[in-house]
Design a protein around this nucleic acid. Structure first.
Lengths: 147, 147
DNA sequence: CGAATCTGGTTGCATGATGCAACCAGTGAT
DNA sequence: ATCACTGGTTGCATCATGCAACCAGATTCG
């Protein structure tokens, strides 16, 4: 049985997961964010089966997160590049990274990190209200709105 | 063949997805964040098979994201509550929500939204460096650090 | 108190998704 | 001209998911 789709769900979180919640999808976006562009490089970096990579890339292209572009080295091959829609998954990746750093590494373990190119300092994500006040899970209230 | 585990991966994003990247897991956390606590309420809200819900909840408890606590109404039943580790997935959920709101709804479509309880205004997540400057995907550089 | 119902699951089964290996056409390098 | 690399596709075995049936203990109803 195919697993359920959340495409028609009213909740944006569910729709997002429907689009990029499959195994590997967000890791492909993560790799793309740090500059990986070619099929074989994604495969080497991620170590996933080629058929699955193929399926995932097709879906990412189909939903406008990535696009196929001519290779940057002038060869006849093509590369995969993030669209604006794909680049805006950046906060999702950073939020996952931040949580993983906090809770899933033991002391002394090596880990990869991203830094601000300019300052060399790590990133943070914060949830804020309009005024720049930092919010936590206790501050939320649920409503339905029209787009 | 069982799908690959990222438990030993150096990348925090991969480890996070290993922990909460399965179908339904983040939606369970989303529901828990807005106050759902009981098995049957999760099932009603999500519409997933009971055996899968059972499996997911067990895993979430096993990895310290949720815990079983006595029912708040004094009955003999037990409820599921988020731990601190679970509540700190809040920015991940908000980031997914924000992206979904931007890209996955047509004009005029109804959608659920979360608001700041106090001000009634929507949340935003922002990626910042230490100084409060807002960053995008172009500002990042990848390094390996020791914990 | 006894029966019905609700809660929180478990078990079996059919089907879809994933990983692996083999294969293949077009491109590029020698 | 040949040989390897790139970017896949196809087939197969196994695992995960959804669905339905079932079940034990707690609660409610009469």
């Amino acid at each position: 049985m195919r697993h359920k789709s959340f495409k028609a769900n009213r909740c944006p979180v569910a729709r997002s997961l429907d689009t990029i919640g499959e195994w590997w999808s967000l890791l492909i976006v993560r790799d793309a964010l740090v500059g990986i562009r070619r099929f074989s490089d994604f495969q080497k970096s991620l170590g996933l089966a080629k058929n699955v990579l193929s399926t995932r890339l097709k879906k990412l292209v189909a939903c406008g997160i990535m696009e196929q572009v001519p290779a940057s080295d002038g060869s006849a091959y093509r590369e995969y590049a993030l669209t604006q829609k794909g680049r805006e998954l950046f906060p999702v990746i950073v939020a996952l990274r931040q949580w993983g750093e906090s809770y899933l590494f033991s002391r002394g373990e090596k880990r990869l990190q991203v830094l601000d190119k300019r300052t060399g300092k790590p990133f943070r994500v914060e949830v804020q209200n309009g005024k720049g006040k930092i919010l936590t899970a206790n501050d939320l209230e649920l409503v339905t709105v029209m787009n």
